[in-house]
Amino acid sequence: MTAAMVRVEGLCKRFSVPRREAGLRAALRALVRREYRVVEAVRDLEFSLAPGERVGFLGPNGAGKTTTLKMLAGLIVPSAGRVEVAGFTPSDRRPEFLRRVSLVMGQKRQLSWDLPAIDNFEFNRVVYEIDPVHYKRRLEELTALLDVGEVMRRPVRQLSLGERMKCELVAALLHGPQVLFLDEPTIGLDVSMQLGIREFIRRYNAEHGATVILTSHYMEDVAALCPRILVIDGGRLRFDGSIEALRRQIRPLRRVSVRAAALPDDPTAMGRVVLREGGRLVLDVAPERVPEVVGALVALPEAQDLAVQDAPLEEVMRALFGREEAAELG
């Protein structure tokens, strides 16, 4: 790849937030003097993304994911460090930059509640100065892909959450952004809608080569969509790589399960026993010992359902963030 689409160096963001203890007396004291406390939402972040990459930000609540995303989008001015997106400094908020990016937030809508989405699209056409021919083609493509041809003519107020999110995506993509920021895009959606949105984002990325940066609570979203993930915790970058690499790093053991008429007497010699119940045995085994263990298990009488898996993602996440669940920033 040539030039990076996103480059972040030494990025920091500090907020000062008022604080007070609970209760009436503290409230009265705060009346006179308000105490502030500096929260370091993002500390010394460093990474770069190539054009067309799909990247997920993972982290517990208040880890600094959204703050980082908003600094990349130019909404929040960094306290220190450098950000460059598509060759621009986002916080300058130059129109040329803003025409190249787009942000979709699952919890906040941009579409006007009382109007049909199509009116909102038309408005975006003017704002982004999209030429009418191009606009028409693009609208047709997006509405076909997301199947909102009929939905977009009804007032947004009457749409279901999923339909609304689809319309939000259309609105965000009409101007053909090179970088797409997605903040919890599937929050509150049912499983099939989540799958649909995920599939759409993947296709859009493949066909248009846009860089996609995603934050999500749903591990599945990130795992299914992003070949590369950045784990941010306490405002720091804790991991940068593929989801597989993350899994291996946090939970190097493989999970081997089998069902057999008789189980070995001392399975602890093979690995850590997760479950031993009836004829079923589940073990966590070091990667280099897997062939040997599998061989031994296959040899068991009436062995069946033998499977070797990575540790489940949720468990990986729990292991990763379990220590400091306490969120620092609301």
Binding site: G23, L24, A27, L28, A30, L31
Partner: peptide
């Protein structure tokens, strides 16, 4: 009590 605290806040 809550309202008073709110009012102060």
């Amino acid at each position: 009590r809550i309202s008073l605290a709110e009012a102060i806040a």
